[in-house]
Nucleic acid binder design. Structure first.
Lengths: 137, 137
DNA sequence: TATGAATGATACCAACTTAGTATCATTTTG
DNA sequence: CAAAATGATACTAAGTTGGTATCATTCATA
């Protein structure tokens, strides 16, 4: 199975954010992150840009530039990052979107799955970034 | 996001099983299922074969042949079908399999995600097929 | 003020997965 | 034997994920 909750984008983003958090007030460049985290440069750059656009990182251009966490960053939850990189979380996605499901008036399978989805979303919401930061990586 | 819990294989399998269940003792052919459920024939055939191999359906070859539920069928849980068609459920799959995760000794993210996975698996285990059958589709 | 080091924007590409096809062999009924 | 069914298996098309490549822009500093 590959119904991963988290893709590489998101995973790399978490690592980068943790690293930047640990660097405190210092401005951290993409190059440094590439060296430290062994993430392919252009891919990481794309991720950093996205985080920057989303207001989670503040970017400084030019020589000596790089990234810092914004205040907003610590309030972001894992689900925020997932949505940023992977779109809204939907584990069910009924295969008959337009047409109502042909055989089942009230599809019990779908209901069950949507219940599971709700639980998952709630859990993912509860994982705030500062929780990850604080737990001594 | 597309981290679906259930792919089409599995979904079609559920529908086919429900239909066959509702046909009681009658032997149901792939053709009938194709007509009724509007599932592409060769795709459905592949699915039925898999269910048959797995002992969930009993197949009858030759003219007048088709499929019936086995006694085992009612005890199968949704997770059984998912595993059959999609392999083992793993929502986390740490990206550093061989090498231990470079930065985090005890990765809190991974722990959280594995917790979520456990919950999901438990839920999926609890959805037995007879539960779906019984709920008047 | 020119240069180099940094990010911004964007288009492209390769591998993998999912969903579906196509074909031929085998079995069984009539 | 013929027709109708399943068994086995190889192939294909579209979408997603993970990653590249390129060029433009900004800024510190010598």
């Amino acid at each position: 199975m590959n119904g991963k909750l988290i893709t590489r984008d998101t995973d790399y983003a978490v690592r980068a954010l943790v690293y930047i958090f640990n660097s405190k007030e210092r401005i951290v460049s993409a190059s440094e992150l590439v060296d430290e985290l062994k993430i392919p440069r252009p891919f990481l750059r794309k991720i950093l840009q996205k985080l920057s656009k989303a207001g989670i990182l503040k970017a400084y251009k030019g020589k000596g530039g790089g990234f810092q966490l914004t205040v907003a960053a610590k309030k972001v939850s894992l689900i925020g990052l997932i949505e940023l990189f992977q779109g809204p979380v939907k584990l069910t996605e009924c295969l008959f979107k337009k047409k109502p499901c042909p055989n089942m008036k009230v599809c019990p399978l779908r209901k069950k799955l949507q219940g599971i989805e709700k639980i998952v979303v709630k859990e993912l919401e509860s994982i705030k970034l500062n929780l990850l930061f604080d737990s001594k990586l």
